[in-house]
């Protein structure tokens, strides 16, 4: 057998071997997917999926806000954050006869500090404005007398909220 022919045969064996491995891998994935999709309790519905790892881990250390000027990523000012919080409050205010809650402060917090306190979610910026209030009398996310709204410092959206009973 010529050396060239042996190389071709060798390459063919490698290709067939690779195909078998890929077919096996594909069918394994297919089988796994199929078993994942089968719902023994509710035919026609995908089964619940158990997730084993925490994809959104909470930072172990809360970073503090640096002293000095606002970080460059912060494009929403404190005043604008307050106005956004007021807008949110007014959206939920059922009547002008019910007084809105009093805003008690606007502070800049880091994402890691907020996540340690509030929990994690995708899309949070590095910094958030925390607009605190008290004397809330109507439903904004349940009727909680005090709490805070976390404003995204880059987009101005309400990123998170907190409601608590009176101390």
């Amino acid at each position: 057998m010529s050396r060239r022919k042996m190389v071709f045969i060798g390459a063919g064996v490698v290709l067939i071997g690779a195909s078998i491995v890929m077919t096996h891998a594909s069918s394994h994935v297919m089988a796994e997917s199929a078993s994942t999709l089968a719902n023994p309790h509710h035919p026609g519905m995908p089964a619940p999926k158990t997730f084993h790892t925490n994809h959104l881990p909470i930072p172990p250390v809360a970073k503090s806000v640096p002293r000095g000027p606002l970080p460059s990523s912060v494009t929403i000012t404190a005043g604008k954050a307050r106005a956004i919080a007021i807008q949110y409050i007014e959206y939920h205010r059922p009547s002008q006869r019910i007084v809105p809650p009093t805003i008690t402060g606007v502070t800049l917090v880091t994402r890691s500090a907020a996540e340690q306190k509030a929990g994690s979610q995708p899309g949070l910026p590095a910094y958030l404005w925390k607009v605190s209030f008290h004397n809330a009398q109507f439903d904004m996310f349940g009727i909680w007398p005090r709490g805070s709204l976390y404003i995204n410092t880059e987009t101005g959206s309400v990123a998170m909220g907190h409601g608590a009973p009176n101390p």
Partner: peptide, 10 residues
């Protein structure tokens, strides 16, 4: 002992 935290998701 924490009250409610809400998290809007896009």
């Amino acid at each position: 002992n924490s009250g409610v935290y809400f998290h809007p998701v896009s």
